[in-house]
Design a binder for these strands. Structure first.
Length: 564
RNA sequence: UCCGGAGUCGUCCAAAGGUAGGACAGCGGACUUUGAAUCCGCGAAUGGUGGUUCAAUUCCUCCCUCCGGAACCA
């Protein structure tokens, strides 16, 4: 059944349309999509949805393909660094575009030729009004626009002006090229939209070759047409652009059956995350986070560093579906996809994040036993790691309670619990510091319980993780939590910065079992009973840094919380 | 108010002129050498009105609500 689902490909309205077009032989049976990021920021979870959609659609036909095209028409915001990061993140997510890497800037010359052609045909003109005048002349929702005094300028004059604009003879703002459509249109986008503006900013690819740059609407559809795109999939906010998209394609003479068609879908919003590039850039610039790849960022780079797997992100994108209604996806859906994949792939080991000392009183001081424990208890073929047991250990402070509530199965005075994989111990005495804080648990063990179960078959409900003090490896562990404390940061007129979660990062010094001390950058593991972690690139030999990707579900915490 | 979109469980997505389905979340239980995972079960929705029809959530009318649009941004 799942085979069937997969061979059918994604089931959503865009895929349905593509299948229908394919079946009807539209575009001569050709299928081509594109992912068109602007290189002015890093890719984030919202882009992942568009990527999975576009690359996924291309697979609906054996000959289908998805181009990567950088929409680099505004040099003032764009940088090569971003383009490189985007390619890196795309590959990490699992996509490949082969030789089909394009840049809108590669089409500048063609675009320019088309523009001159439009002028000659009376479909465009150079407007020499100020930005203020142009805005005023456009009217508003209730007021029709008025024609620019330059609207009837002779084509020859516009041509001359445009050439001089291109050559850099005018200051920015002196002139623009506008399409001559209809200043009375109810569709404000059609009130003589601007095609080119003068910009003397050097471009990251074309350098100072150009002094005019095309506006999105005058570049996007044309780029699609040049590349033979059949389905130009974009988000809802571009719906209002579609009539203009189509007008330009017709104006430059693309025959009807060959015009790419724009299809819009709802962008992704995830609870407790933001996907506004402007806001993400602000977080980075104002140093609310450590960078675009801060593990708390919803960027692919940040998620990668946090320990997300590409598989889990793709699975999430497939599960949320594609539709035209705006919404806010519950972050638990993302977390579920993450845990699901991590659970299936992460080796297990033990680490104590908030250590409290344990001494096993009736164990010889020089006792040492090495257990060979499975890295994956459900699959012994995945190997084992060696875990030493000695008289002095660390256990988690939170796993001990001096006066436990009902249903507490863990360490407490007189209570027998199991040290995971090792043996059974009972707390005999509790030592306190001056401030009353527990400093040490003195326990007794059952020497016949080596391995973790008692020969008499008595049941021991609680199991806790532990680390031999003598062999423990110290490491920094960064406990990440949601960056925002509000599900919809910035909603209403709230400033999203006031909703940053003050506890989104806690750094602790942990005690690791020896095997964990030999992990390498980007390796992912499960700290048993705690969560999934991965090794941060800032780790140094002998000074590992682990990032908490996500905690394990904790039904005890839930129970305890419910009972107050 | 003008133009363009959208309204289905708490959330996201699906279906359909004839018992509205899945996932996540929630709740309950089983199992457990991870209070994890796994398994089983439960509750939960078609914005409103009028109409067409044997039957409307689906088709039509009117209304309501929400989102986007007046950048020389994408």
């Amino acid at each position: 059944m799942s085979d069937e689902l997969e061979s059918d490909g994604p089931g959503n309205f865009v895929a349905d349309k593509v299948r229908e077009d394919l079946a009807q032989g539209k575009f001569g049976g050709r299928l081509r999509t594109r992912f068109p990021p602007e290189p002015n920021g890093y890719l984030h979870i919202g882009h992942a949805k568009a990527i999975v959609l576009n690359f996924g659609l291309a697979e609906l036909d054996p000959a289908g393909r998805c181009n990567l095209r950088f929409d680099d028409t505004n040099p003032s915001a764009e940088e090569a660094e971003f383009a490189e990061a985007i390619e890196r993140d795309l590959r990490w997510l699992g996509y490949e575009w082969g030789e089909h890497l394009y840049f809108a800037s590669d089409y500048f010359e063609q675009l320019y030729d088309w523009a001159e052609d439009l002028i000659r045909r009376g479909l465009a003109y150079v407007d020499s009004q100020s930005g203020e005048q142009i805005r005023e002349g456009r009217g508003d929702f209730h007021r029709p626009g008025v024609n620019s005094p330059f609207r009837e300028r002779a084509p020859e004059e516009s041509l001359g002006l445009l050439r001089r604009m291109r050559a850099g003879e005018f200051p920015e703002g002196a002139h623009v090229l506008r399409a001559k459509i209809d200043m009375q249109s109810k569709d404000l986008k059609k009130r003589d939209p601007i095609m080119y503006r003068i910009l003397h900013t050097p471009h990251h690819r074309t350098g100072d070759a150009w002094h005019i740059y095309p506006i999105y609407d005058w570049a996007h559809g044309q780029s699609d047409a040049i590349e033979g795109i059949t389905h130009s999939v974009c988000t809802l906010e571009f719906q209002n652009h579609r009539p203009l998209y189509e007008w330009y394609l017709e104006a430059i003479g693309i025959p009807e059956g060959e015009r790419p068609q724009q299809v819009e879908f709802a962008r992704l919003n995830v609870g407790f995350m933001i996907t506004s590039k402007r806001k993400l850039a602000q977080l980075v610039e104002e140093k609310h986070v450590a960078g675009w790849d801060d593990p708390r960022m919803p960027t692919l780079a940040g998620m990668r560093r946090r320990g997300y797997t590409p598989e889990s992100i793709r699975a999430f994108c497939e599960r949320i579906g594609v539709a035209k209604r705006d919404g806010l996806v519950d972050v638990t859906l993302l977390e579920h996809a993450l845990r699901e994949h991590l659970n299936a792939t992460s080796p297990r080991a033990m680490a104590v994040l908030d250590p409290i000392e344990v001494v096993i009183d009736n164990m010889p001081e020089d006792f040492e036993h090495v257990f060979s424990l499975p890295l994956d208890p459900t699959d012994e073929t995945r190997g084992t790691r060696e875990v030493p047991l000695t008289q002095r250990l660390y256990v988690e402070r939170g796993d001990f309670m001096e006066d436990p509530p009902k249903k507490w199965w863990r360490l407490a005075p007189g209570r027998e619990v199991r040290l995971r994989g090792a043996c059974l111990v009972t707390v005999k005495r509790v030592e306190h510091g001056d401030d009353g804080e527990v400093t040490r648990l003195v326990c007794e063990w059952d020497p016949d319980s080596l391995g973790g179960s008692a020969p008499d078959g008595r049941k021991v409900r609680g199991t806790v993780h532990w680390v031999s003090a003598k062999h423990a490896v110290d490491a920094e562990v960064r406990l990440y939590d949601r960056l925002f404390s509000a599900e919809d940061p910035g909603a209403g007129d709230t400033d999203f910065l006031t909703q940053l979660n003050p506890d989104s990062l806690k750094v602790v010094s942990a005690k690791l079992e020896p095997w964990l001390g030999t992990r390498e950058v980007e390796e992912r593991v499960q700290f048993e009973r705690v969560g999934y972690f991965c090794v941060d690139p800032e780790s140094e030999p002998g000074a590992l840094v682990f990032n908490r990707t996500i905690a394990l579900r904790d039904s005890w915490a839930k129970l305890a919380k419910k009972k107050g």
